[in-house]
């Protein structure tokens, strides 16, 4: 597994290079495993509290893309959240979620322009990317076998794409 450490104190979003995504769904598995108790694939699937993934690989116009919370500057989900469970971290710009406060009204699910928030109907809370608080890097980015996923600022991602074109 990749040992690359990413500084988490800046405005980081996880981006997907659609030209490199092959829809293997490794990011989905890695995300669910990271949010399990055992943090091990074979054991996580037999845990009583089945871990949930917080991203989805979707097909759009014949291309596949790994869809994550974009941690929007002006986040519609935060505005829509009536219980105050969703908020913005002023320092890093991350969209944070407090599970204790979430009442499962699904307003965030409906307002998210990316479809990046899903409802966990069993626990009755919304589930979204939390930028892997238990690790220094990001499970999906670290496990992506083609290097399609990228963690960084919008500028850094654009720079990476332009570099590739040259």
């Amino acid at each position: 597994m990749s040992k690359v450490k990413v500084k988490k104190d800046k405005d980081i979003t996880i981006y997907c290079d659609v030209t490199k995504c092959v829809a293997c769904r490794t990011c989905e598995l890695a995300c669910a495993v990271e949010h399990s108790k055992s943090k091990d694939l074979a054991n996580s699937i037999i845990e009583k509290d089945t871990p949930r993934k917080r991203l989805t690989v979707s097909a759009i116009n014949g291309k596949s893309i790994s869809v994550h919370c974009q941690h929007c500057k002006e986040a519609p989900c935060v505005t829509a959240c009536m219980s105050g469970a969703l908020s913005k971290d002023e320092k890093t710009g991350a969209t944070l979620q407090d599970n204790e406060k979430c009442v499962g009204c699904w307003m965030c699910v409906m307002t998210c322009p990316f479809g990046a928030i899903v409802g966990d109907s069993a626990k009755h809370i919304a589930v979204k990317c939390d930028l892997c608080p238990d690790r220094d890097d990001y499970a999906c980015v670290a496990t992506c076998p083609t290097g399609a996923l990228f963690a960084g600022t919008k500028k850094e991602f654009e720079k990476k794409l332009t570099k590739k074109k040259k």
Partner: peptide, 10 residues
């Protein structure tokens, strides 16, 4: 090759 595909592993 690491990480190996989880679907194949399972």
């Amino acid at each position: 090759q690491d990480p190996h595909c989880g679907f194949g592993t399972l």
